[in-house]
Amino acid sequence: MGQKGTETRDRLLDATQELLETGGYFGAGLNQVIASSGAPRGSLYFHFPGGKDQMVGASIRRAGQAISDSLHGLAESSGSAAEFAEGVLNQLGDRLEQSGWRKGCPVATVALETAATNDPLQQACSEVYASWEGEVRARLADHPDADDLAVTTLALIEGALLLARAHRSRDPLTRVARQVRALLS
């Protein structure tokens, strides 16, 4: 694929991710994606012959990889597991607040809306969460209960993001950061 094709595909995925994060799966219609991306309708079907679900799955995996890369960077720069978890909460909290409380987790809304009824999207969401869990587990490798702690930490982060978005406040993130520090220290 040439540079122009890659740029068009990226614009489609950027628009899809923006719409997914702010309006969920059902708020990311094909017409909205085309309008937001500025891409021609034919490009959508060229790059995603499987239609909306293929495009949404690709968008979820792409956003998930970006968060995974961020987690990896935080893991390398933090001194302890507790500092790592606090860094994740702060970074995601900054992202949420800067978006006007519209962008929490790039996967959660789609997972909640489609996991019970759409196997390909459930699989995409599961893959992303598993990769994040793996990043957290790698940072917690020194702990005897690393597997359980990784799931617990990820669940606390996800829950804190949801509550922060619902309350439009960083307070849930701050409270969870304190508890994660106690849990991981």
Rank of each mutant, 00 (worst) to 15 (best):
H167C: 11
V110R: 08
N90I: 13
R9G: 08
T6H: 12
T109D: 09
S169G: 06
T114S: 10
N118Y: 06
G159S: 01
R165N: 08
G51A: 00
S43K: 09
Q65P: 00
R170K: 12
V107E: 05
V88Y: 04
E127I: 03
T117Y: 15
E127Q: 14
A146H: 14
P172L: 02
G38V: 01
T109V: 14
S131A: 15
T152F: 09
A141F: 03
G24T: 06
G79E: 13
G100I: 08
A35Y: 01
S185T: 11
N31H: 08
H72Y: 11
V176E: 07
A28L: 01
S70M: 10
S70W: 06
G50M: 03
A115L: 15
W132D: 01
N90R: 12
R168P: 02
A35N: 07
A108Q: 14
L13F: 00
D147S: 14
D94T: 12
R170Y: 08
G64A: 05
T152C: 09
V128Y: 01
A155L: 07
S80V: 04
N31P: 00
L89V: 11
A150W: 03
G51M: 02
L13N: 03
A141M: 01
Q54F: 04
L20T: 04
A108L: 13
S36Q: 10
L71Q: 00
A155C: 05
G87W: 12
A111V: 09
W101L: 05
S37M: 02
R95F: 09
G134A: 12
G27R: 01
V151M: 10
S59T: 11
L20S: 06
L183K: 07
R170M: 11
I34K: 07
M1K: 08
L112F: 13
D145T: 05
G24P: 06
D14E: 15
A141K: 10
